[in-house]
Simulated assay, not measured.
Amino acid sequence: MERRYLILEMLKKSKTPVKGKDLAEYFDVSRQIIVSDIAQLREEGHKIVSTRDGYVYDAGNKVRKVVAVKHSAKDIYDELKRIVENGGKVLDVIVEHPLYGEITGRIDVSTLDEVEKFVSLLMSSGTKPLSEISNGIHLHTIEAPDEESMARILKALKKYRLNKEEDVNNE
Results as ranks from 00 to 15, higher is better:
Met1Arg: 09
Met1Lys: 08
Met1Ser: 12
Glu2Met: 13
Arg3Thr: 11
Arg3His: 00
Tyr5Gly: 07
Tyr5Arg: 11
Leu6Met: 13
Leu6Trp: 09
Leu8Phe: 01
Leu11Tyr: 07
Ser14Gly: 11
Ser14Thr: 11
Lys15Ser: 14
Thr16Met: 13
Pro17Val: 00
Val18Phe: 06
Val18Tyr: 07
Lys19Tyr: 02
Lys19Asp: 09
Gly20Tyr: 06
Asp22Thr: 06
Leu23Tyr: 04
Leu23Met: 01
Ala24Glu: 06
Ala24Ser: 09
Glu25Val: 11
Tyr26Cys: 12
Tyr26Phe: 15
Phe27Trp: 09
Asp28Phe: 10
Val29Phe: 06
Ser30Lys: 10
Ser30His: 09
Ile34Gly: 03
Ile34Glu: 00
Ile34Val: 15
Val35Pro: 01
Asp37Thr: 03
Ala39Gly: 02
Gln40Ile: 03
Gln40Met: 14
Arg42Asp: 00
Arg42Ile: 06
Glu43Pro: 09
Glu43Asn: 14
Glu44Phe: 10
Glu44Trp: 09
Gly45Trp: 11
Val49Leu: 13
Val49Arg: 12
Ser50Tyr: 06
Ser50Gly: 13
Arg52Leu: 11
Arg52His: 10
Asp53Gln: 15
Tyr55Gln: 08
Tyr55Trp: 14
Tyr57Cys: 08
Asp58Thr: 09
Asp58Pro: 07
Ala59Leu: 08
Ala59Phe: 10
Lys62Arg: 15
Lys62Thr: 15
Arg64Tyr: 01
Lys65Trp: 08
Lys65Ile: 02
Val67Cys: 09
Val67Gln: 02
Val67Glu: 01
Ala68Trp: 13
Ala68Arg: 15
Val69Ala: 04
Ser72Ala: 05
Ala73Leu: 00
Lys74Ala: 12
Asp75Met: 10
Tyr77Asp: 04
Asp78Phe: 04
Leu80Arg: 03
Leu80Ala: 03
Ile83Pro: 06
Val84Pro: 04
Asn86Leu: 04
Asn86Thr: 04
Gly88Tyr: 03
Leu91Met: 11
Asp92Trp: 06
Val93Pro: 05
Val93Tyr: 05
Val95His: 05
Val95Gln: 08
Glu96Thr: 14
Glu96Asn: 11
Tyr100Lys: 14
Tyr100Leu: 15
Glu102His: 09
Thr104Gln: 10
Gly105Thr: 07
Arg106Tyr: 11
Val109Asp: 02
Thr111Met: 09
Asp113Ser: 14
Glu114Ser: 10
Val115Thr: 10
Glu116Ser: 13
Val119Pro: 08
Ser120Met: 07
Ser120Leu: 13
Ser120Lys: 15
Leu121Tyr: 12
Ser124Trp: 10
Ser124Leu: 11
Ser125Met: 02
Ser125Gly: 05
Gly126Val: 07
Lys128Phe: 05
Pro129Met: 03
Pro129Ala: 04
Ser131Met: 14
Ser131Ile: 12
Ser131Thr: 09
Ile133Asn: 01
His138Ser: 07
Leu139Gly: 00
Thr141Pro: 04
Thr141Lys: 13
Thr141His: 06
Ile142Lys: 03
Ala144Pro: 03
Pro145Ala: 10
Met150Asn: 02
Arg152Trp: 00
Leu154Ile: 10
Lys155Pro: 03
Ala156Lys: 08
Ala156Leu: 03
Ala156Cys: 04
Lys158Met: 12
Lys159Cys: 10
Lys159Met: 14
Tyr160His: 15
Tyr160Ile: 11
Arg161Leu: 13
Arg161Ala: 14
Asn163Arg: 05
Lys164Asp: 02
Glu165Gln: 09
Glu165Cys: 03
Glu166Pro: 01
Glu166Cys: 10
Asp167Asn: 10
Asn169Phe: 11
Glu171Ile: 14
